[in-house]
Design a protein around this nucleic acid. Structure first.
Lengths: 347, 347
DNA sequence: AGCGTGACAGCAAGCGCTTTCTATCTAGTG
DNA sequence: CACTAGATAGAAAGCGCTTGCTGTCACGCT
């Protein structure tokens, strides 16, 4: 039914070994023979059997990219950059590798299961993106898996994830970014700032919030716990959290959001509450996703070099770039001041 | 070095066959034996060798999802929905399948290569999303590949892609949506509408444009070729195209964009040109991506049920839902009238 | 008591490819 | 001109798992 190597060999009048060598091209084969084989491959429409090949060679060309939410451009942009470097078909890199992205939906179990699946497939490399869940049990389980993967020869790289002893990491300076952002707001004169955080158990959430609080502390502004609301990394969450913040303290002059998407929700809530941005309330986001510049007013935010970080992680995963010293590279964000933040109204 | 089935068998004092059967669970195994095996698996930290298993069983649990641009939420949303139904770990569906998304970047060659790679891996199913390239040679090549895949037992489903004889398709009524949108604008009184199209060779582009023109024709409005500009499906393209449209005819009262992202770029260009939306110029998008409602004013657009369509495609791909009659299901968009469109200023 | 019948467990033959080792042939060398 | 090195090609042994076919028991029936 299906065409096998042997069929090609028979047709080209050579041994299967030769066909294999022509296809893999790492062994001398006479030009005439090669041609004959290629012709047979073509005529028979032969397609290599991946599993068989992976089994025999004990390697595979699968590379896994784990993301928390594939519908979120934050991950989409990184994934795209990684995939590009990984090689995939037509990518910058050579060989044909199957770069696949796996959507964990932020669930620890799914993350683990995908890792196992990738391990089953003897993946060549795995890149984990985005914040991690801070549950110790889960962290240990993931660490364990990563170690095993590495032991089995799978290259493991983290991108936009806090470093762990088990892998090379390209990490974002979320803390620093958060701090810069809040410093900017404080510099404008704000003293009553609301903060909309992401899910409480995510590292990204914690780091950004810590940066915010550090800035507050440095300016001697008391950090009222009332002024922080936790939510999800989506628009609706930003909307609701803003309403809640307003309910708690209508005199807020600025809202700092966990990311741009949340910030957009915050803007909507403010507008619906009859407040103008930034005249009545300033709003700031994080990430600088493409749409942030199109908000009206354009969003002040911290730009994270998602594509660059992804590309670098991808290259490292392919062994085309050396790991950073110490296995950790920290990438800083850049404050982008735009129209959504301004001085608070004089009281 | 690595633990194999045989190791587990030895430890559990059974034959490899028994271990395999315990793991696959489709053959009677005494409870006590099963337990012993499971214990050994656990103690040894055994991980099945995917390729070996796929080779022996001549099947695989890989499912491929092809997207044009993974950084675009349009695809992200569909991919996410598909993946959810496919099963992946923790998905609604049972078994553990490796649902992977492949980013073609809109390139025909990459599309083909990914298809071959998937074929190599003997994928269980493949879902192709988004518009197709209208190059006859490429269409034929893809059709060919799809047929082969289907012959080899891979289920092939198209989602948001024009139907082809080779596969089941969930298709969007882009033409109808485009028509509705333009009818809405005409109904408001617009007579001089600019159109920013996507890449010329994409089916999606053509269909939406055809709908637009059909509406124009029905209203007896002459379709000036000058009023259509082709571009890419991104923001910058919308920005530049709008500037160009304005250059050609400053009296335009409405701009219809190929999708929401492009529309956002158009809005920016209009604002930068000192025009107000919708007072001076109305703007309409397509897709109703999440951020569209956050634009100011909120974008009038055609909502496409991306998630629903994806979910359905996913279920069909897994054989958990019957194919639609004739193998084609057409999904309509829903006109969402919002603030970005209004009556043109009285002249 | 004799035997058919399930319920399990094991044997062994591959699945389709890679790769080591060997065989063959040609050409260069002293 | 015998001899060796280099270049190719082939034989065959797996890679780790699945599964059809064969046992082997322990029962329960006549």
């Amino acid at each position: 039914m299906t065409v096998t190597l042997a069929d090609v060999a028979a047709r080209a009048q050579v041994s299967p070994a030769t066909v294999s060598r022509v296809l893999n091209g790492n062994y001398p084969v006479a030009a005439s023979t090669r041609e004959r084989v290629l012709k047979a491959v073509d005529e028979l429409d032969y397609v290599l059997n991946g599993p068989a090949s992976a089994l025999a060679a004990a390697t595979s060309d699968l590379v896994g990219i784990l993301v928390n939410d594939i519908a979120d451009p934050f991950f989409g942009i990184m994934a795209s950059a990684i995939q590009n470097e990984i090689g995939g078909p037509g990518g910058r890199a050579g060989g044909e590798r199957l770069a696949v992205v796996c959507n964990t939906g932020g669930s620890p179990e799914r993350e683990l299961t995908y890792l196992t699946l990738l391990q089953r497939q003897r993946a060549a490399a795995v890149v984990l993106t985005g914040g991690a869940i801070e549950d110790p049990a889960h962290l240990a389980a993931v660490g364990n898996k990563l170690r095993r993967l590495a032991d089995a020869g799978t290259r493991v790289v983290l991108c936009g994830r806090p470093p762990t002893p088990e892998a090379i990491a390209i990490t974002f300076d979320n803390r620093g970014g958060g701090q810069q952002l809040t410093e900017h707001l404080i510099g404008l004169g704000h003293r009553r700032l609301g903060y909309i955080a992401g899910p409480e158990e995510r590292t990204t959430t914690r780091h950004r919030l810590e940066g915010h609080r550090a800035a507050l502390a440095a300016a001697g502004i008391e950090d009222d716990a009332e002024r922080t609301v936790y939510g999800r990394y989506d628009r609706l969450s930003g909307y609701e959290a803003t309403l809640e913040l307003l309910r708690r303290d209508r005199t807020l002059t600025a809202v700092v959001a966990a990311n741009d998407t949340v910030a957009l929700g915050a803007c909507a809530a403010l507008r619906d509450s009859g407040l103008r941005i930034p005249d009545d309330v300033s709003v700031a986001g994080f990430d600088d996703l493409p749409f942030s510049i199109d908000a009206v007013p354009a969003l002040t935010t911290v730009r994270l070099p998602l594509a660059e970080a992804g590309a670098r992680a991808g290259r490292i995963a392919m062994g085309r770039e050396e790991a950073p010293p110490g296995g950790i590279a920290t990438v800083r964000g850049e404050l982008m001041v735009r129209g959504s933040t301004g001085a608070p109204r004089a009281k």
